[in-house]
Design a protein around this nucleic acid. Structure first.
Lengths: 137, 137
DNA sequence: CGGTATCCCGGCCGATACTG
DNA sequence: CAGTATCGGCCGGGATACCG
């Protein structure tokens, strides 16, 4: 229920609240992000994706894709062949989201050193190690 | 280790890989997203944030903020007063990310019905319920 | 008021093994 | 090759109680 409901304000709060949860559902998965951005490169079959994402288990790939399909972000087309072949592709909806996600991905890429520095300054041993490794290279 | 390392290709893969994990670390938290976007409204104290985010426990708020501070996305300033007062504010770095996150948030807001429809079509009972409730209003 | 420590559960996710 | 079923560990995160 929407608690702080002043007149005329209710729906916006509701939308905010609802949207937030949707966003969380969409992003929360460990692999969702990688899968979506990987699919930006175009229609792709299962094995291809698995190779791109590197580290994902067949189970999680399948599971993630089903989740995305469930939300209408990814379309799945099965070809009646032997051996079986399945293609995945971003829908128009998914494409929009993927674009936004990619922005964040790019941002993250460009600021990795900066963030790493902050972490190291705050005593994160892993970050310090990474920085040292990067410096040594 | 980077497995599929062709010459000259290694570093990009490394960057991608590294960035991906950073992104995941940044976004994975259930509350990170909400906290960051909430902070977009400006400097704010703990209790204020707790009210804005609605549903977050003190523990998770604290924990999330510490994580963000750790990465240099949020600055924390303590005022020597009684009762104690602490302000949180996005850093320049955090502001950048917040802008991007907000894009996704807005996108999600605008596409809630669409996604809900997809989910309902795929037999998600909760989505069906929500749609019915929205329709009845 | 702001923050932490402790307990504990649900579910995410990985590994493995198996069907079509 | 695509996908599922099952088991199990791990940890995110909620509730509660407690310090400065």
């Amino acid at each position: 229920m929407v608690t702080n409901a002043t007149e005329g304000y209710t729906f916006d709060v509701f939308k905010r609240h609802c949207a937030s949860h949707m966003v969380l559902d969409l992003l929360s998965g460990k692999w969702t992000y990688l899968t979506v951005t990987a699919l930006r490169q175009g229609r792709m079959r299962n094995a291809e994706l698995a190779r791109k994402i590197e580290g994902i288990s067949p189970k999680m790939l399948s599971q993630t894709l089903r989740g995305l399909e469930h939300d209408g972000l990814v379309s799945r087309t099965v070809h009646a062949e032997v051996p079986p072949r399945v293609d995945y592709e971003l829908t128009a909806l998914g494409e929009e989201l993927a674009g936004l996600m990619d922005q964040i991905c790019i941002w993250a890429q460009n600021h990795v050193p900066e963030i790493l520095t902050h972490r190291a300054a705050n005593g994160d041993p892993e970050a310090q190690e990474r920085l040292a490794a990067a410096g040594a290279r």
